[in-house]
Design a protein around this nucleic acid. Structure first.
Lengths: 141, 141
DNA sequence: TCTTTTCATTTGTATATACAAGTATAAATT
DNA sequence: AATTTATACTTGTATATACAAATGAAAAGA
């Protein structure tokens, strides 16, 4: 069903959730190429760009709660893609060699995902939408 | 953290999810007044406007899977807000008197929720955004 | 009429996420 | 130095959602 036919289509809650579910689906499909859930892939990429990143910092950047980040890291550790080292209060997350190997594939993946939705929405429009969505998110403090 | 500071802020997956989480939070807070999760509230409103609605139809309109609708209805049944009647293959969902009683409060709630984000975003902008989000959702077929 | 297919819903199971509480360490206050 | 508070992370638990398989009923085809 088109969202424009829903009686809830005027509500931000409804619209954003519907969109998020569709985009999620697209992303899941896309990231299957590296056998990762989208959120796992994003976290791994962050750690690859920023080896030794702390969970709190990752949580901040990914806009997820620390507990969720712990869970995501656990999964990536099981797959031997990252390791955690803890010294006192702070924890650092590093990519393993296996994780590092994945980088080029992930970059390709990311590019393909962007291409997918850019083709559907148009380059102009998709960029503008993402910007507007970010602005909206920021305003909701 | 502002989403505009995230290194993922250019990605639709990321942006939509972050937005959805924030809006969800706002909605959850708002719907506490009637002691319902947002999705439960929306489903109940649908059934109030459309007594006897079938789960498949609700799924269609809410853009959720049938199994999710089953689960939502179960919760509402536990709370004695709706009842299900099944004849052969089809099921109809009706509001109970207790469910009907909630209608005015829910309308108020809905209004207040809209007001909340309209005040933050501006009337113009929030309407436009919702429309654009819907358009985007539709295009992702 | 019997069989097969399709449809509507439910159930089993898995995942992502959050909140609240717990733990352990460091920093600040007294 | 001892105590309190703050910080960083983890764990227990709960929820929403999805997919795949199961169920049961109707429709279509033989």
């Amino acid at each position: 069903m088109k969202s424009s036919n829903s009686r809830f289509n005027k509500c931000l809650y409804f619209s954003t959730n519907a969109l998020a579910r569709k985009v999620e689906k697209l992303a899941v499909e896309n990231w299957k190429k590296v056998d990762l859930a989208p959120s796992h892939a994003y976290l791994l990429m962050m750690v690859l760009e920023n080896p030794g990143a702390q969970p709190s910092c990752i949580a901040d950047e990914m806009q997820l709660t620390p507990s969720t980040i712990t869970r995501l890291i656990e999964k990536l550790e099981e797959k031997k893609l990252v390791i955690r080292t803890t010294e006192g209060k702070i924890t650092n997350v590093y990519p393993t060699p296996k994780g590092k190997e994945l980088l080029p594939k992930m970059k390709t993946c990311m590019g393909e995902f962007t291409k997918t939705y850019t083709e559907i929405l148009g380059a102009e429009e998709s960029m503008r939408m993402v910007q507007n969505i970010n602005k909206l998110t920021d305003k909701l403090e």
